[in-house]
């Protein structure tokens, strides 16, 4: 039987996404075997991250500085604002390297099931950011997920921003790169057909 410290560590690790009790036990054993090379640096890194990382008061991104590095980066286009549901979505877009504007993280979507109302999301701050930006923002890209909740949130934001005169766009829906038509679901095919464009 392991000691209480190890049991506690296993319990905590088992609460992480992708890990269950069995894999948490394996991770703990691995960490204990590589104490100096992995466990202590990991502990230091966790403590440092917990202490220093804060949400950006401008966009909601997570960074060690406030405003975050993206909001402070003067090389980025100030006129483009991409609205995403979560920091994970922001990271996904950053990984793609195709967007050089600024972001706004909503912190979720409107959800009747989970009781998430507009006041629970960073929508008011988005509207303030757009309207009080002295005309700096010219286009808002709504990059919410293609789900009922994601699109309902996008339509709600679009309504809230409709009087500002700012261009509002959304990401395209349709066939993914490398997607074979035979394997796509009917809904995606319908959407792709609707959003077809001339060659």
């Amino acid at each position: 039987m392991a000691g209480p410290e190890i049991e506690r560590l296993v319990q905590l690790l088992a609460r992480l996404p992708g890990l269950g009790p069995r894999s948490a036990r394996r991770a703990v054993l691995h960490l204990l075997r590589k104490k100096d090379a992995l466990m202590l640096p990991l502990a230091d890194s966790l403590a440092e991250t917990a202490e220093r990382i804060v949400p950006c008061t401008t966009c909601g991104n997570l960074d060690s500085q406030d405003p975050c590095a993206i909001c402070c980066d003067t090389r980025r286009e100030e006129t483009l604002l991409c609205v995403v549901e979560s920091v994970a979505d922001l990271w996904a877009l950053e990984r793609s390297g195709s967007f050089r504007g600024r972001y706004h993280v909503l912190g979720g979507t409107l959800s009747a099931l989970d009781g998430v109302a507009p006041a629970d999301l960073n929508i008011d701050s988005l509207v303030r950011r757009v309207t009080e930006g002295m005309g700096a923002i010219r286009e808002v890209i709504l990059a919410t997920n293609v789900t009922v909740e994601g699109q309902t949130t996008a339509h709600y934001i679009s309504d809230r921003l409709s009087g500002t005169g700012i261009a509002i766009s959304r990401l395209a829906h349709g066939v993914p790169v490398g997607g074979e038509l035979d394997y796509l679901d009917d809904g995606t095919l319908n959407t792709a057909l609707k959003a077809r464009r001339p060659l």
């Binding site: 009922v148 699109q151 309902t152 679009s158 009917d186 809904g187 995606t188 319908n190 959407t191």
Partner: peptide, 21 residues
């Protein structure tokens, strides 16, 4: 198994989507 994926047809129409929700 999918029979009819109605929702995809409504995602672009805010009023119909809100009626569905």
């Amino acid at each position: 198994e999918a029979r009819r994926l109605w929702t995809a047809d409504l995602l672009d129409d805010p009023l119909r989507l809100s009626a569905l929700s």
